[in-house]
């Protein structure tokens, strides 16, 4: 079975020879970018560069997927936000939103999605990039893409500060905005599906229990997430960073094929709560272990993930591009040698 078949079997809950090592989030490395001679700031605006770079983690290390985009601003940009890719930056700076769409509470009611949404911003570029990536490595590994969750997207198009307070003071108003964000996300996901992705990860990072109570998660965050999950026809993964121990069951209720958690989640405990059939990806520490750790620390972390019962060894966030190549190799080797033993 090749990597692609292995991951697809995991999504279908079929038996595999070992757990795979992949993710639905960013995983490009400086090693890969430098080999191609590209600049980080350039790859967000060029489908060919983006797709080629996204293929390097598989080609160099055997990482079992290819994922585009690299940044988190595609949906907000298509909705009308101005983004900054930091074209002059020497090092690595991820694009951010320069100009919000909603500047005050009243504008929450008047905001609409632009006509012809699927042709806005970089959505056409994303379709091209997915197509190129699939043609390049799509027979060997799964090709994935990601969208934001409704709350996280809302936090980009308006001041997060205001959004958080209004979630408390005027939940109805926020719920309406989240529903609109859900529509934007669904339109984006549908374009990615058309372009041929095997799976889509929904990143609802803003709704972590570090920020919002599990109660508000249930009442406010869950309904629009359910709407998004229901609309995605390929395999779906719901990712939330930070503290998630108290919301893993709610995450499952959102209806994804799988959930993804980071190192703050006690996966052994989550596995107990969700049962043997649940697909749980995680919870490799994408920075403190993968970038800063030694090879041995990386190997230990991989074994711990597997012992705790992950369905796939999966870094809990975008892999920071300066990751040492030997750590990527160690993560893959350890998954391959240890991942079939459980």
């Amino acid at each position: 079975m090749n990597s692609r078949e292995r991951v697809l079997k995991v999504f279908r809950k079929e038996a595999v020879d070992r757990v795979p090592c992949f993710s639905g989030m960013g995983n490009i490395t400086e090693t890969g970018i430098n080999q191609l001679g590209y600049k980080f700031a350039g790859i967000h605006l060029d489908a060919k560069q983006m797709a080629e770079t996204a293929a390097t983690s598989y080609k160099l290390f055997g990482y079992e997927c290819g994922v585009v985009p690299v940044d988190l601003c595609v949906e907000a940009e298509a909705m009308g936000c101005v983004i900054n890719v930091y074209p002059q930056a020497e090092g690595i700076l991820y694009p951010t939103i320069k100009e919000k769409l909603i500047h005050n509470e009243a504008e929450m009611d008047t905001i609409k999605l632009p006509e012809g949404f699927s042709e806005k911003g970089r959505i056409p570029l994303m379709r091209t990039a997915i197509g190129l990536l699939k043609a390049d490595i799509g027979n060997d590994v799964v090709v994935g893409s990601y969208v934001l969750g409704p709350f996280t997207l809302a936090g980009q198009i308006m001041e997060l500060n205001d959004l958080l307070k209004l979630s408390f003071k005027k939940a109805d108003k926020v719920a309406k905005l989240l529903d609109l964000c859900a529509d934007a996300i669904i339109l984006t996901a549908k374009e990615y599906e058309k372009a041929g992705v095997d799976f889509i990860t929904v990143r609802e990072m803003g709704a972590t229990s570090d920020v919002l109570s599990p109660r508000v998660f249930k009442s406010l965050i869950l309904p629009p997430l359910q709407k998004v999950m229901k609309a995605i026809s390929v395999y779906s993964v719901l990712h939330i960073c930070g503290k998630t121990n108290d919301i893993v069951t709610s995450m499952m209720e959102a209806g994804p094929t799988a959930i993804s958690v980071e190192q703050k989640n006690d996966v052994a405990e989550s596995r107990k709560k969700l049962g043997p059939d649940a697909i749980i990806f995680g919870n490799m520490d994408a920075y403190n272990v993968l970038v800063s750790g030694s090879e041995e620390v990386v190997r230990q972390a991989v074994r711990k993930c597997i012992d705790d019962g992950v369905s796939g060894v999966w870094p809990g966030c975008d892999i920071w591009p300066t990751v040492p190549p030997q750590n990527m190799k160690a993560m893959m080797e350890e998954t391959i040698s240890y991942g079939g033993k459980k």
């Binding site: 307070k165 570090d210 919002l212």
Partner: peptide, 14 residues
């Protein structure tokens, strides 16, 4: 104690 979360803190700050 996880009685309050970030929205509450922001309102307290106001």
């Amino acid at each position: 104690a996880q009685e309050y979360f970030v929205p509450e803190i922001l309102m307290c700050a106001d």
